[in-house]
Computed example of a mutant assay.
Amino acid sequence: MTRHTPPRPVDVERLFPEVASLRKETVRLHPSAGEPTCRDSSVGGPLLWPAEEAWPSCPEHDGSPMVPVVQIYRSAVPGIVPFPEGCDLLQVLWCPRKHSGHRWIVPHVRWREAGSVGKVGETPPRPAERWEDYVPRPCVVHPELVTEYPYWDLGDDLWDELEFRFLDLDEETGWDYQSHLSTAPGTKLVGYPGWCQEPDWPACAGCGNRMEHLLTVESTEADAVSRRAWTPVEERHTPSEGPGLVLGDLGGVYFFECHVCPGRPFTHRYDCP
């Protein structure tokens, strides 16, 4: 079943024209528990991984296999997702074990051409020692293009200009800019990261440019406040069972990549409420 996010309850750009130029499109994935195959886009499902290609393992734990987190076929998502030339499949894995330096996960990002995959390998067993909350339940996805606006990424000057107007709107209507009108919550592609705190945009180690947001993986699709505005119409009365992740204190992991340097280098950030 497709998913439809309700329209914003007020006209954001009419009330706050200052944010109009900062509008971005994001692809909400709306993961719901299911039985995806390696030929499907999924969260936590099996990957279209070539049998002859080594499965990624954690560099900190000798030979410990990573677990599938996200697989997205280009045909399943709108064209705003920047697939590299010659690639039509995005695969993200991570190690769900405890790591040094207070790291939640160690990730791996792989772009590939699905048609070049011959015999498909089997997903290795999950490592016996793992944080169960960091292993996503297999979910099908329902990609949806949604407009969003920045909150934490507004910048100090614009925040100072708009803060009291945000408060006035909340008092008059009950709609909060941060929770109900700005950045879409949940697991999503491109657009704005789902920051819970001050932004921490990484710079590429190769060229020094600010990296682009590729993927947000969240513990939940919406918190108790934001679900009022962001819950899909189809789930208002029967919420879907999602991946079941608990990342830190119900936080998220954000993936970034450089579109300039060869090989699309990536990095990630953690965030907690």
Rank of each mutant, 00 (worst) to 15 (best):
R3L: 11
H4D: 03
H4I: 06
P7F: 15
P9V: 06
D11Y: 10
D11C: 13
E13L: 03
L15I: 14
L15P: 04
R23G: 08
R28I: 09
H30S: 06
S32V: 11
G34T: 07
T37M: 10
R39H: 07
D40P: 01
V43D: 02
G44M: 07
G45P: 06
G45T: 14
P50S: 13
A51C: 14
C58Y: 08
C58A: 14
D62H: 11
S64H: 08
Y73Q: 02
R74F: 08
S75Y: 13
A76I: 02
G79C: 06
V81R: 05
P84K: 05
E85K: 14
Q91D: 07
Q91F: 02
V92P: 02
W94N: 00
K98N: 12
K98V: 14
K98M: 13
S100T: 14
H102T: 11
H102Y: 09
W104N: 02
P107H: 03
H108Y: 15
H108K: 13
V109Y: 00
G115D: 12
G118N: 06
V120S: 15
G121P: 12
G121D: 14
P124I: 06
E129C: 05
R130S: 15
E132H: 13
Y134H: 11
V141P: 01
Y151W: 15
D157C: 08
E161C: 13
L162Y: 04
L162D: 01
F164L: 15
D170Q: 10
D170L: 12
T173A: 12
W175Y: 13
D176G: 05
D176H: 12
T183I: 03
A184L: 07
L189S: 05
V190F: 08
E198S: 11
D200L: 08
A205N: 05
G208P: 01
M211H: 09
L214M: 06
A222W: 01
S226Q: 04
R227D: 06
R227P: 03
R228T: 15
T231D: 00
T231M: 04
R236P: 02
T238V: 15
T238N: 09
L245Y: 08
L247C: 01
D249G: 00
G252Y: 02
V253W: 00
Y254W: 04
F256W: 12
C258K: 08
H259E: 11
C261A: 15
P262T: 04
T267A: 04
Y270V: 00
Y270N: 00
